[in-house]
Computed example of a mutant assay.
Amino acid sequence: MDLSFKTDEGRFNYRVAGLLLNESKVLIMKDENSPYYYFPGGRVSMHEKSEDAILREIREELSVDAAIERLLWINENFFEEEVLKEKFHEICFIYLLSLKDDKLLIKGNEFEENEEGKIHTYYWKTFDELKELNVYPLFLKNRCSELPEHLTHFVETK
């Protein structure tokens, strides 16, 4: 069971995301119906550690194995999702990851993956390109190029 549930006041979501870097580029993704970009990851399941969840999500979405370097950010995010028009209260753990091989890198700067019938498009973007895109969580647009030395907590309200 994913730790995401609907209430009368909106949806609570416990999510993990992975920051994958390659030659001053960061991997972001977009769904076919989404007007915004985000970082690979997904929901944490009940009784699942966040570390296990991010590795599982990367394996499910990208068919590659990754290793966790460290936890970078905890993000509390309060927003209205643009497609669903649903209010969210989201907690997200964002990990710096490394790839265990180069299978993902040889796919190029833009590629598609099919996850159980849902098409995701992935993009390797430079830090400057990232700043010009509609990317969530917002703080990552300016923080990916300067990773914190210690775990950092951000709260966003939109």
Rank of each mutant, 00 (worst) to 15 (best):
F12A: 10
F5T: 10
E149N: 15
P137C: 14
T121A: 09
Y136Q: 11
E51Q: 03
N13H: 15
E113Q: 10
R15P: 05
L99M: 08
E48W: 04
L138R: 15
E116G: 12
K158F: 10
H47Q: 06
S34N: 03
L62H: 07
E113D: 09
G117Y: 08
H47D: 07
L55D: 02
F5L: 09
Y95M: 06
D8E: 14
F79I: 08
S98Y: 05
M46C: 09
K141V: 02
R56H: 08
A53N: 05
N109P: 08
D65A: 13
L27K: 04
K103V: 04
T126Y: 02
P137Q: 12
A17C: 10
H47L: 14
R56M: 11
E132M: 13
P35I: 04
K125E: 00
S50V: 01
W124P: 00
L19K: 04
N134Q: 14
E69C: 13
E51H: 00
L72Q: 09
T152Y: 13
E86I: 09
K131I: 05
D8T: 01
Y38M: 04
L20E: 03
F127A: 00
V135K: 15
E86M: 12
F5Q: 11
L84Q: 12
A53I: 00
M46G: 01
L105G: 03
H153V: 15
R11D: 01
K85Y: 08
L84D: 06
E76F: 15
R11K: 15
I91A: 09
Y122G: 06
L19N: 07
A66K: 11
H150G: 08
G41F: 07
I54E: 00
P40L: 01
E23V: 00
E112P: 03
V83S: 14
E48C: 05
E51K: 01
E23R: 04
K158S: 12
S24T: 01
E146D: 10
D8S: 11
I68T: 14
I106D: 04
E116P: 00
F111A: 07
K131Q: 08
F78Q: 14
I94H: 05
E129N: 00
F93R: 02
E149W: 08
L71S: 09
Y14M: 15
E57H: 10
L97D: 03
V16Y: 01
N109K: 09
H120D: 08
Y38D: 00
I54M: 06
K118G: 01
K85W: 03
F79P: 11
K30Y: 02
F12Y: 15
N114T: 04
L3P: 01
E81I: 15
E57T: 07
K85R: 15
F93W: 12
N77G: 09
E76M: 14
K158T: 05
L140T: 08
K118F: 13
E32P: 00
G41S: 06
R56D: 07
K103I: 07
Y37H: 08
I28Y: 06
Y136I: 14
G42M: 11
Y36N: 02
D101R: 06
N13D: 04
P137N: 14
V64L: 05
L140S: 14
D8W: 03
Y37T: 01
R15S: 12
Y136A: 13
W124K: 06
Y37R: 07
P35E: 01
V83C: 09
V64Q: 07
D2S: 05
E113L: 09
R143P: 04
F88N: 08
Y123I: 00
L105R: 02
H47R: 03
L55R: 09
